[in-house]
Design a protein around this nucleic acid. Structure first.
Length: 465
RNA sequence: GGCGCGGUAGCCAAGUGGUAAGGCGGAGGUCUGCAAAACCUCUAUUCAUCGGUUCGAUUCCGAUCCGCGCCUCCA
C-alpha cells in the first residue's frame, strides 16, 4: 500500500511518494543547543525517526537534514552569562544531544548543519529577497521580510494576515516594521550580542531564526524537497515564514509535505520547571529508565495525538517490552540454528498488516496491535509444538525486519556474570537433589544480585530484573 | 477574537454507518517442587452530553459542556 501522510498544508491525508521516485528529501527542525533537550523535544525526534525508518522500509532512500540552531537570543545570553565563547558553550549541548539520540536509538540523519556554519548562505538568500523587493532594511540596519509584499502568506497556518494581531511578546523596538507580522531576516548588532556578529552588505549583525532553515534546506536538499517536519508549535510563525522567504526567493514550491507532531504533556499538564514535571532524557535515565523504554513510551502514541507522559506509562512500556523480549527469545531458542523457512500460516498475514498500518499516516497503535497479535499466536504455536525451527527462524527474521522500523525490540541482552552462572549451577544441583530450601535460597541470592531465574525445558535461564 | 486538536473500560490507546483492536493493570484457572514465563477464561450492553439524519451512529450533521495547543523565535 502506498503511504499516506497527513499534510498540514492540505489539512488532509495525502498519498506520498518522493518527487523523483527514489529518494525522500526530508528536513526536520532540530534543537536549539543552549540547554539539554527535554522529553517533549525528543518526542518530535522519535517521531521523525519512525518516519525516516518507515520510509526506508518502503524501499526509498532517505536524505534527512536536521539543523542545529546555535545562535539566537537565548544562546547568546546564556553563553555570555557563562563567560564562554558561543561555540564552546553550544558544543556541550550538541554533544549531549547526540548522546541522547543514541540512547533513544534514533538513527543519524545524513546532515546536521549548524546555523553558524551557514551564515554566508543566509546572507545570499536575504540578498535575493532584497533584490526581488520582498525584504526591506530598517533604520537600525535590520532586514525584515514584508508579508504584505508576498500574496501567499498564511497558507500553511491558514491565518489571514490582516487579522494578525500583536502578541504579548512583541518587542517595543520593533515599531519600524511595515506590518506587525513582518519578521526579521537579519538582526542588526547591539552590545548584548558581544562578539557574535557577521558582516553583511547591509550592515553588521546576525541572522534571524527562520532564515537558517530555508538556507540550509536549500543547500542540502535543493530549492524544492519532499517533507518538512517539526512540532505543531512551529506551524506558525516558523514554518509559515520559511515558506514565505523560500518561495519568494526561488519562485518554486518549497516543501511538498508538512508533517507536524503534537505536544507532550506530563501528568496532564504542560511541562514546566515550576510544576516539577519537567524532564530531560538524562533526568529519566537517572531514575532508572532505559533509553529503549523511553523510546517506546514516546513512540507508542500516534504522532498527531497529544501524548500524556507519566511514570505509569513508562512502567507499561517496560512490561510490554519484557513481553516482546520474552517472545523473541522463545522463538530464537525454538529456531536454534535453523535457516528461516517461509512464514508459517499463523504469521503470513502479518507483514502486510504491519506495513499497511504504518502506511496509514504512521498508525503506530495499529502496527503494535499487529505485533502483539503475532506474539499471541506465536506463543501459542510454541506452546503447542507447532512452531518448527524453520518457522521460528522465519518469524524471528520478520520481527527483526519490523525492528528496523520500530527500534525497540533488540533488548541488548546482558550476559550473566560468572558468579551468577555459578549460583545458577548450584541451584540446579540442589533441585536435582530435590533440596528445595537450598534451591530457593540460591534463587533469592540471584534475585539480590538482580537476576531472575526461569526454569525451562532447556534448563534454567537467567534474566536481568 | 482567530486558527487547530481532543474527550472510547482502572490507566494508555486504535477503529468502523451494521453492532467496540491492542498494551498495561486486575480476577480465576492450566503448567511448575514452588516460582518465573507462557497459555486459557473473565475484566466497556458501551464510545463526554443533548438533539438531528438513517432501517441502523461510537462512527455523519448541529448544539452544549469539559480539557488542551498555537497566534513573533517553545518540538
Amino acid at each position: 500500500m502506498q503511504p499516506t501522510f497527513y499534510n498540514t498544508m492540505a489539512r488532509a491525508k495525502e498519498a506520498f511518494a518522493p518527487a523523483d521516485g527514489a529518494t525522500v528529501r526530508m528536513y526536520t527542525c532540530g534543537p536549539t543547543v543552549h540547554d539539554f533537550a527535554h522529553i517533549g523535544n525528543f518526542r518530535a525526534y522519535v517521531f521523525e525517526d519512525l518516519l525516516r525508518r518507515f520510509l526506508k522500509s518502503c524501499g526509498w532512500e532517505v536524505v534527512q537534514v536536521m539543523n542545529l540552531t546555535d545562535v539566537d537570543d537565548k544562546t547568546i545570553r546564556k553563553s555570555r552569562a557563562a563567560g564562554l565563547p558561543l561555540r564552546t558553550y553550544t558544543k556541550t549541548f550538541s554533544d549531549a544531544f547526540f548522546a541522547d539520540l543514541d540512547a533513544l536509538r534514533i538513527e543519524r540523519a545524513e546532515y546536521y548543519p549548524a546555523a553558524t556554519d551557514h551564515v554566508p548562505d543566509m546572507i545570499a538568500l536575504i540578498q535575493r529577497l532584497i533584490d526581488k523587493g520582498f525584504a526591506y532594511r530598517s533604520d537600525d540596519g535590520s532586514v525584515y521580510f514584508g508579508i504584505d509584499r508576498y500574496d501567499a502568506y498564511g497558507r500553511l497556518a491558514r491565518v489571514d494576515k490582516s487579522g494578525l494581531r500583536p502578541g504579548a511578546r512583541v518587542a517595543q523596538d520593533e515599531y519600524e516594521k511595515e506590518s506587525l507580522a513582518d519578521f526579521a531576516l537579519w538582526k542588526a548588532w547591539d552590545e548584548t550580542d558581544g562578539d557574535v556578529v557577521w558582516d553583511a552588505p547591509w550592515g553588521r549583525g546576525r541572522p534571524g531564526w527562520h532564515i537558517e532553515c530555508s538556507a540550509m534546506s536549500m543547500r542540502y536538499l535543493g530549492e524544492s524537497f519532499d517533507i518538512h517536519t517539526g512540532g505543531q508549535d512551529n506551524i506558525f510563525p516558523h514554518h509559515e515564514d520559511e515558506i514565505a522567504q523560500s518561495e519568494a526567493a526561488t519562485g518554486k514550491p518549497f516543501a511538498r509535505f508538512w508533517l507536524h507532531c503534537a505536544h507532550l504533556v506530563v501528568d496532564g499538564r504542560k511541562m514546566s520547571k515550576s510544576l516539577g514535571n519537567f524532564f530531560t532524557l538524562r533526568d529519566l535515565r537517572e531514575k532508572g529508565w532505559s533509553g529503549r523504554e523511553i523510546r517506546y513510551g514516546l513512540l507508542s502514541t500516534h504522532y498527531r495525538q497529544g501524548l500524556n507522559f507519566t511514570f505509569d506509562s513508562l512502567g507499561a512500556a517496560r512490561s510490554a517490552l519484557q513481553r516482546l523480549d520474552e517472545f523473541r527469545g522463545r522463538l530464537a531458542s525454538a529456531a536454534g540454528a535453523a535457516a528461516p523457512g517461509p512464514l508459517p500460516s499463523w504469521a503470513q498475514a502479518s507483514p502486510a498488516l504491519f506495513h499497511d498500518a504504518l502506511a496509514d499516516d504512521l498508525n503506530i497503535s495499529a502496527a503494535l496491535g499487529v505485533l502483539f497479535d503475532l506474539v499471541h499466536v506465536g506463543n501459542r504455536a510454541v506452546d503447542s509444538g507447532d512452531a518448527k525451527p524453520a518457522d521460528a527462524a522465519a518469524v524471528v527474521a520478520l520481527l527483526d525486519s519490523w525492528d528496523r522500523v520500530l527500534g525497540v525490540l533488540a533488548p541488548g541482552e546482558e550476559a550473566a556474570d560468572d558468579a551468577a552462572v555459578e549460583l545458577a549451577r548450584l541451584r540446579d544441583e540442589a533441585r536435582k537433589a530435590r533440596n528445595w530450601a537450598e534451591a530457593d535460597r540460591l534463587r533469592g541470592e540471584l534475585a539480590a544480585r538482580g537476576w531472575v531465574v526461569q526454569d525451562t525445558a532447556q534448563g534454567a535461564k537467567l534474566k536481568r530484573k
